[in-house]
C-alpha cells in the first residue's frame, strides 16, 4: 500500500465533482484527502487528491478518472519533485499556565496564531502534510477543541509548460512497457 498524490484537471461544469466522487466510490478507491479549486485556466478546475493503494489500484485511479468526459488530464506527481501544502486551523485550549508553551511550539512550526481569547487559541499552519501532522500531535496534549484541514494541494517544481505536463499526464502505457 502506497500513498500517491495526484492532480486532476477538469472542466468547471455542474456535477463534475459528483462524477469524480461517484467514480471513487463506485470503484472502491481509497481517497485520503481531496482539494479542488480554480486553476490558471478559466473554466478548468484543478483537484489535488491523495489516494492509497497498490500499483494496480493507482493505475486504475488514474485511467478510470481520465475516462470521465469532463476530466481533461490526470497526473500522478508522487515521484516528481513538488511543492505540496496543506492548511489547518486548530483551536487549542490555552490558559495562563501553558499559553506560552503553546506559542513556542507554534513558532517552531512556523504556524501563526490567528485568534486569541481567554480559554483558547486558533492556530493556523501551512505546510507539507507531515509538518501539519506533527504540530497536531504536539498540540494534542493541551486539548484540541476543534480542527479543520484543507487536504493537500500540490504543484510540480520548476519551469515546464502546462501543455507538456497535460500530455504526459495521460496515463496510457504509451511505450508498451509495464
Amino acid at each position: 500500500m502506497n500513498k500517491h498524490t495526484m492532480i486532476a484537471w477538469m472542466e468547471d461544469k455542474p456535477g463534475v465533482l459528483n462524477r469524480v466522487a461517484g467514480l471513487f466510490r463506485r470503484r472502491n478507491f481509497n481517497i485520503e484527502s481531496l482539494a479542488v479549486g480554480h486553476s490558471e485556466t478559466s473554466g478548468i478546475s484543478r483537484m489535488t487528491f491523495v489516494a492509497t493503494g497498490d500499483d494496480r489500484e493507482m493505475r486504475q485511479v488514474q485511467t478510470q478518472l481520465y475516462k470521465l468526459i469532463n476530466v481533461t488530464a490526470v497526473q500522478d506527481v508522487t515521484d516528481v519533485p513538488t511543492v505540496s501544502r496543506e492548511l489547518a486551523l486548530i483551536k487549542v485550549k490555552a490558559k495562563n499556565g501553558n499559553r506560552s508553551e503553546v506559542m513556542q511550539i507554534v513558532d517552531i512550526f512556523r504556524g501563526r496564531i490567528v485568534d486569541v481569547d481567554m480559554e483558547t487559541l486558533i492556530i493556523q499552519i501551512v505546510g507539507p502534510e507531515e509538518r501539519v501532522e506533527s504540530l497536531i500531535n504536539l498540540l494534542d496534549q493541551f486539548g484540541i477543541v476543534e480542527m479543520v484541514r484543507t487536504g493537500t494541494v500540490a504543484m510540480v517544481r520548476g519551469a515546464h509548460d502546462r501543455a507538456a505536463q497535460q500530455k504526459t499526464a495521460v496515463p496510457a502505457y504509451e511505450n508498451g512497457n509495464q
Partner: peptide, 17 residues
Amino acid sequence: LDPAEMGKNITIDTPVV
C-alpha cells in the same frame, strides 16, 4: 483501446493501447 482495461483484472505482459 481503453487504457483502463490494461491490468485491471489480469496482470499482463504487453499492453497494446
